[in-house]
Amino acid sequence: MATWWDMLEVARDVDLRAVKRAYAAKLKSIRQDEDPKGFMALRAAYDEAREHIRYREMETEDTVVRQEPFERDTDTSHDSTSIQDNIADSEWKMQGQDELIIADMVYTPTIVEQLMNEVHALIRSPWGAGRVDSWAAILDDERLDDIDAYSDFENAFLNYMLNIHGFFDEDTNVESKLNLAVAHLIFERFGWQSNRNSVHFNPVVYDWLADKFFQQNEDTPHGDLDEIDGETDSGANAKNSSHSQFNQRGQKKKPNPKTEKFFKWFDGNGVFYLFLTMIALMVLYYTFGSNS
């Protein structure tokens, strides 16, 4: 099997621009409809090359951040950098049910932060968990019309919900903090059920949250929204049924399938997220740590 640099006929340390150019040149000599195999091999090499370069760039960035910890940006506009978003995320992550570190901020919070404060206040207010209209008001806020603000808000919101329900500390005993109507509203507004395979998040987190939210008043082990006619066949009576012809090879019942699935996903993408979280923590430390 040829390596990507052999396939693309480039040096191993090329930059993305050169990889694209090489790919484009090769692509023009292949007919996708007549030689799908040739195309797929070229495409695989191209994907691999990009992945390689992305990884390499991440390593470089890592050292840059290590050398010069940056000041917190005081920009009040919504278009914050992704690093900042992750700072924001990790604040909610760390603070969880307690106070948000917004009090001693010297700058105007971003739109996402403002809205997350509203979310937090609503969760803590006595009737907040059930007030559909208040939740809808936040989720329909017109400031979220902005495509970037919306992305950041969805990120932050999901992380916050996962956090207060014990996802990050493996605490499965935390009860849902929202009533069913609100939970349905949230899943519907973000489209979490219909778009569960978004590249952005792992499906596992949606399923975990769905279980948490929707199992409260239902007896079934899987309380997903879409579990309408999910049926359980025992080995014996399923023999001639048209359903259940397969099991996933090698999949055995594990004590905590959620954890297992999460770590399986983590092998693939986790390094990247872990890395972002680490930067976020470092920045937090530099900004706040020395004062307290």
């Binding site: 049926e231 359980t232 025992s234 399923a238 259940s244």
Partner: peptide
């Protein structure tokens, strides 16, 4: 579970 399968 042992010999227990869930379809769907």
């Amino acid at each position: 579970g042992r010999d227990q399968y869930e379809s769907g």
